[in-house]
């Protein structure tokens, strides 16, 4: 999975499930289809749940990169 430079970023470290996904979704709604947002979430449940919810809503996961106890997830709006 190649790292891509996202159109915008959202730091959701410390934001629990499912609020991290709710905030991600609200940001995605503001984007045009094909645009990307990179969200930074905590490892564990957030890193598992956010990509799953994004796929269920019809978006594409561009990359998932773990670093320093958090995970960067780049999502392309479907």
């Amino acid at each position: 999975m190649a790292e891509k430079i996202p159109d915008c970023r959202l730091d959701l470290r410390g934001t629990p499930c499912p609020l991290n996904w709710v905030k991600t979704k609200l940001r995605l709604e503001e984007l045009d289809p094909g645009s990307t947002v990179e969200v930074v979430v905590d490892q564990g449940n957030p890193a598992r749940n956010v990509p799953r919810s994004a796929r269920m809503d019809g978006h594409t996961i561009v990359h998932v990169i773990s670093e320093n106890g958090s995970v960067r997830i780049c999502i392309e709006r479907g």
Binding site: L19, L26, E29, D57
Partner: peptide
């Protein structure tokens, strides 16, 4: 579109999560 406040995001989170509703709904 007016942004939701933090408390609105939390209050309506179970609506916003619904694919058919979202922030727009």
């Amino acid at each position: 579109m007016t942004r939701f406040t933090e408390s609105q995001i939390e209050r309506y989170s179970r609506h916003i999560i619904l694919q058919e509703v979202g922030g727009i709904g």
